[in-house]
Design a protein around this nucleic acid. Structure first.
Length: 647
RNA sequence: GCUCAUAUAGCUCAGUGGUAGAGCACUUGCUUGGUAAGUAAGAGGUCACCGGUUCAAGUCCGGUUAUGAGCUCCA
């Protein structure tokens, strides 16, 4: 005789049931509609298959496809049961690895002896649809480690065997199968009870991925897909992807004539006049913010003798990413080996080291728009987002240990201001704590971590802790901002360093008259101008705020006889430093509007007979699609008021 | 760096071994037109680079470089 158990549902209602009741029976207990829609359940926080039983008092949630959990379980089944089986059907020699869910979808990794390309995806997708069409039931059996290893050894699935062998558990390995098909897969589960509950899916891309994410392991084939509860949601997602593609900064850069890259200088940007004007506007804005916040701007050499890099540790730790230069032997009197700087910190310490510093001088905040070069692996380059030559809004704060906390607070407040003013309302902070391999004493680490953490706490900004992700010389805060379409970008960073001052001999004279080592806080807000401009372009879809727009106002003539008036206006706006362009071409006004709209010029003025005779100007805005008529003085006021830096 | 793919006119792309194409952009002519494409004509290419196969290569094969999607890394 089995005992009675109490089942508590999410809304608090309780039901009595016999111990051993299964998930699907619980769903039926609640309602037959729910039982039909149910795909899995959760018992005391643990996700289970509907066929699993419950033998003690439990908090139970039944999942349907309408919940996030249900959607994820469905995606998981599409990956591990449907895609995996389709791969085995089409490529019987393939060795299955893993098939987890990711944001909006899933992937499956497998080893294939024949290359699989994107052209093969439609056939695989077809096979998946066939498999789903069988509406096969998914069954589960549980095995001991030994049995599970044997099952997958028999099937010659070495990755599955390795997963089981690497596992610490000795039993409870779940193997899922589909009816009598002979297909089995190792899985933590849960899965849909049968394939007729699968939603709409699409395979999206294919690539290579290292086994266990380790670049020293062999590369597997990875197929990505997305899955949604119905066709409508799938379409919506695919449309969203297309929208994201339209704001690709590489595409917009061509339309807006901002910059280009070319084969002779991979990963290095050729800025065009319009792109450079954005860059300069952003740099001037940052320069002003930094000056207001107690930074002194400096500039240091790009090409520096290897001796300095040896002293700083870069020659040892960072050399494979450094561009090394040698002077042509025929013309050089002395043979020197130099490196293009990959970071600015060693040079900043050189500036600090000039002249004896007193504790009264600290903190010293040195800022540089530091041009750095790093030989990035060829496959990692991506438009402006990942380049080999870039400029950081770099800064190094030389301070005492006691000043870390207040400097942290000051930095976060500056960063927060800047992100907000640039249009990013949300950003996350990650506190990265001491890694396994590190330098410095635990006392100093305690102090550094505590200082960083208490400073954020005071600002009441939420943050997460990334244990062990800090730099080897100190803990750091990473700042991740979210753009207009929800993508995340790591930009700002704030790192404390107790190592470099020692290596490069930075000192100050303390109150006690003795020499002490300062702490260096490495910091950047934008990270790199190149990447940040890429992010801004995509965030705004190229429709830049007025102060950043390369061309702020374009004057478009309707007929030839107003060109003289338009040219007068051009002079007027030039005099107040508005970036203005005159389009007096022999084209219709609609044509001009279309062209400048595509080029994302924020303000367009139509200049016709009416404006000329009234001495007025009609300004049409790109973002609002509205038109206002101003007198010339009103227009000047309006433009001056709206084209300044944000604040 | 690794996997797969791509490289044809300024841009977007078509071109399955036999005399290089389209649309847009550009130049010129006509048109002077009021809020997202007026019209006609013209010019424009060593088909990324190096090699191979073939009577013949933009097309097939190999290599190099760059680019794209990812992986690993990262500002």
């Amino acid at each position: 005789m089995s005992k009675e158990i109490t089942i508590t549902l999410p809304d608090g209602t309780q039901k009595q049931a016999q111990a051993g009741i299964t998930g699907i029976e619980i769903a039926e207990l609640i309602g037959s509609g729910l039982a039909k829609a149910a795909i899995a359940f959760e018992a005391n926080g643990e996700q289970r298959d509907l066929s699993d039983s419950v033998s003690e008092d439990s908090n139970i949630s039944i999942f349907t496809i309408d919940s996030d959990e249900g959607l994820e379980i469905m995606r998981h089944t599409i990956a591990a049961q449907v895609l995996a089986r389709a791969i085995k059907n089409l490529y019987p020699k393939a060795k299955l690895a893993i098939g987890p869910i990711i944001e909006d979808g899933f992937y499956y990794d497998f080893l294939s002896d024949e290359p699989v390309s994107i052209d093969d995806l439609p056939a695989i997708e077809q096979e998946m649809k066939k498999i789903v069409g069988t509406k096969a039931e998914i069954n589960k059996t549980t095995h001991s480690k030994k049995d599970a290893v044997k099952s997958f050894n028999d099937l010659d699935e070495p990755y599955k065997v390795q997963i089981i062998e690497d596992s610490e558990q000795l039993s409870g390995f779940q193997i899922y199968s589909q009816g009598e098909t002979g297909f089995i897969d190792l899985c933590r589960g849960p899965h849909l009870p049968s394939l007729d509950k699968a939603g709409s899916f699409k395979l999206t891309k294919i690539s290579g991925a290292y086994w266990k994410g380790d670049s020293s392991n062999e590369m597997l084939t990875r197929i990505y897909g997305t899955a949604w509860k119905n066709e409508k949601d799938l379409k919506k997602y695919l449309t969203h992807l297309e929208e994201a593609e339209k704001r690709d900064h590489r595409k917009l850069a061509r339309v807006m004539d901002l910059f280009h890259l070319q084969e002779e200088a991979p990963g290095m940007v050729f800025w065009h006049p319009k792109g450079w004007s954005m860059y300069v506007a952003l740099q001037n804005y940052i320069r002003r913010k930094q000056t207001e916040n107690g930074y002194d701007e400096i500039n240091t050499p790009l090409v520096v003798d290897r001796k300095l890099w040896e002293a700083s540790g870069h020659w040892d730790k960072y050399r494979e990413k450094m561009f090394i230069t040698e002077i042509d032997e025929e013309h050089a009197n002395e043979k020197r080996v130099n490196a293009l700087k990959p970071m600015n910190c060693p040079c900043h310490v050189q500036v600090y080291n000039q002249g004896l510093k007193s504790y009264r001088d600290l903190p010293i905040r040195l800022a540089e728009f530091g041009s750095c070069h790093r030989y990035e692996a060829s496959g990692t380059m991506h438009g402006l987002m990942r380049v080999r030559g870039f400029t950081q809004d770099d800064g190094h704060i030389f301070c005492t240990e006691d000043q870390i906390e207040s400097e942290t607070a000051g930095f976060i407040s500056l960063l927060s201001d800047i992100y907000t003013e640039l249009g990013f309302t949300t950003f996350d902070i990650k506190l990265c704590t001491r890694p396994e391999t590190r330098v410095g004493s635990d006392e100093v680490w305690d102090k550094a971590e505590l200082a960083l953490e208490s400073a954020i706490k005071k600002l009441k900004i939420p943050y997460t802790i990334e244990t062990g992700e800090g730099a080897f010389y100190g803990p750091k805060l990473d700042f991740v901002l979210t753009d207009a379409i929800g993508r995340e970008w790591q930009c700002g960073t704030f790192q404390s360093d107790f190592n470099l001052p020692d290596r490069l001999g930075a000192e100050y004279v303390g109150e006690d008259g003795e020499k002490h080592k300062p702490v260096i806080m490495h910091r950047a807000i934008l990270g790199s101008f190149e990447r940040f401009i890429g992010i801004l372009i995509e965030n705004y879809s190229g429709k830049m705020p007025l102060w950043l727009a390369p061309t702020q106002l374009v004057l478009m003539t309707v007929t030839e006889e107003v060109i003289d008036y338009a040219a007068e206006l051009e002079t007027v706006f030039n005099e107040i430093n508005i970036r203005v362009e005159l389009d007096s071409r022999n084209e219709k006004i609609g044509y001009k509007i279309r062209e400048h709209s595509n080029a994302k010029v924020p303000l367009m003025a139509v200049i016709g007979k009416e404006e000329k005779s009234n001495e007025s100007i009609s300004i049409r805005s790109l973002s609002k699609n509205d038109t206002n008529t101003y007198s010339i003085d009103e227009a000047k006021d309006f433009l001056l008021k709206n084209s300044d830096f944000p604040s």
